[in-house]
Design a binder for these strands. Sequence first.
DNA 1: ATTTTTTTATACCGATCGGTATATAATTCG
DNA 2: CGAATTATATACCGATCGGTATAAAAAAAT
Lengths: 199, 199
Amino acid sequence: MGRPREFDVDEALETAMELFWRKGYEGTSLTDLTEGMGITKPSLYGVFGNKEGLFLKALERYERTKMNFFHEALKEPKARDVAERILRGFADSQTAETGPSGCLGINGALACSEAAAEIQKCLIENRHRGERDLGKRFERAAKEDDLPPGQEPYDLARYIMTISQGTAIQAASGADRPALYRVIDMALQFWPVPVAQNS
Amino acid sequence: MGRPREFDVDEALETAMELFWRKGYEGTSLTDLTEGMGITKPSLYGVFGNKEGLFLKALERYERTKMNFFHEALKEPKARDVAERILRGFADSQTAETGPSGCLGINGALACSEAAAEIQKCLIENRHRGERDLGKRFERAAKEDDLPPGQEPYDLARYIMTISQGTAIQAASGADRPALYRVIDMALQFWPVPVAQNS
DNA sequence: ATTTTTTTATACCGATCGGTATATAATTCG
DNA sequence: CGAATTATATACCGATCGGTATAAAAAAAT
């Protein structure tokens, strides 16, 4: 009942996500948002609450649509394949031609005013969560003798995430996908490709 | 002649640098700056021109005082020592207890509004310059048979810078120095420590 | 057809943004 | 002592910030 909505919520959220991704939380104004989404401010506030709520929903969408490779990668049977899929998955997302360069989780609010402190904190926790999930996966790998000998699982997780965060900056600075792939190749050099196993 | 300045320009610039470092270019307001520096707006504009000019001077100071290790590191005779000094130098600066976490060159303006596009461009060029300088150094190393065999110098430079940019995000997310050192240890694993040489 | 409900459009809100005009205070030069 | 010069303090500028009040428009329910 009532007057029907004249815009597609999902489509509008996609646009908001891309704007926040490219310009950051504070760098994106409500005017940017309403003009880009093709809706008015009351409509935006009616559906998404406020700017912070919109950003959080955009982040949720980002995780669901652009970071889905991450939890898929965790399912790889071998830890090295987990690592490689994550690294290449990040690089792919950070250099996709259809979207902005870099990573929303970093571009969103790396350094900001007090007004955005809550968003900043949320994004930091987001990064920690990913690193922790990866650490848990490597912990399992350690029990399965699936890590380089003596390798601490959570240090390895931090290493992988550090590379991915580095490529996010590289992508935001103009690096293309092949360049990032070459970085990833080097980052994985220390981790020997397992020889074919008989069993 | 004329009324003498009542504040120390260098000291004020140091404060501005730290504010921009912690909150970014757009996240730092003129009120933040004048209150932090203990001067009024006309004084700020009289000495530094405008906000953009102040940021550029702060960046210059940052390069001179916090990034001096970089060009020192390039003078190391062995490429691996160049790489290691750069990696640890960045990690040290990003986790110093006296200053903000992370890196001004990245925190300053990673993603921003159009109003800060010029600063953003300047910081991107800054990163490119460092990477290029390091690439040149590795080019020399290649001629001196001082690189892992088959290693492309500019790819190696990008690899080192990617790690350092990654640790900048890690530091901004709360990682401490020992954690970053362990990341660096792993990043250097593929690069064998040369055995003691006779000659 | 009228009421009810929801969305839309317009106009507006106080606060803050970067930046400056004006005038006063503090110094050196003549 | 002026006069000239430079820095300070105060108050203000238009523009934009995120957010909202008000009312018209478009649908469903009665």
